Computed example of a mutant assay.
Amino acid sequence: MSPTVDELRNEIRESVGRYERVESTAFTKEALAAICDAVDYDIDANRLPSKSRMRAGILWKIGVAEEDDPESAGSAFRKAELEAVAAALRDDE
């Protein structure tokens, strides 16, 4: 049985040193920044970019997107994107 979206988010959170969440929530800017760091997408940690910019950068760095265009990143990761992010983080371990 494939993991749920919530399970994938929590796996990703734990992979980057963030805390598992009991309730279903999207990633915070801080969690996205931690994922950016884990996939080597450079951001200014003193002034975090928009969530869409960070999502686009993450997808670009793991090979899901051809460029880091925030317009194409959408408002949240889709399940297939979460699966790709989790797999990329697993490969880095």
Rank of each mutant, 00 (worst) to 15 (best):
A34E: 01
T4A: 02
I35L: 02
S52T: 15
R90L: 11
A80C: 08
E83S: 09
L48W: 07
E14K: 11
E7V: 14
G74P: 06
R9T: 00
R53K: 15
S52V: 02
K29G: 15
A76M: 09
T25N: 14
A45Q: 14
N10C: 04
S72G: 08
F77D: 03
F77S: 04
D44F: 08
N46E: 13
L32D: 01
A80G: 06
T28Y: 08
E93F: 03
S15F: 09
T28H: 11
D37R: 13
E30M: 01
I12N: 06
Y41V: 04
S15Y: 03
D44L: 05
Y41L: 01
V5A: 14
A88E: 13
V64S: 02
N10Q: 07
A31H: 04
E7F: 09
D92W: 06
S2P: 14
E7W: 07
N46H: 11
V5L: 10
R47P: 00
F77W: 03
G74T: 04
E14C: 02
V64W: 05
G17I: 09
T28D: 09
K51G: 15
E30I: 02
L48V: 07
E30G: 03
S52A: 14
D91Y: 00
A33N: 06
A88C: 10
S50G: 14
D6R: 10
E14Q: 11
L82Q: 02
L48C: 04
T25A: 15
M1P: 01
D37T: 10
S24F: 14
E93S: 09
L59Q: 11
D40Q: 11
A33S: 15
T28M: 07
V85Y: 01
Y41H: 12
I12Q: 05
I58A: 07
I12T: 05
A31G: 08
D44S: 12
A88F: 09
N10K: 05
L59S: 11
D6W: 01
E81K: 06
A84H: 09
R18D: 07
R53I: 02
G63M: 06
R9G: 01
D42A: 14
D69Q: 07
Y41N: 08
K61P: 03
C36F: 04
L8F: 15
R90M: 04
T25Y: 10
D37G: 05
E83F: 00
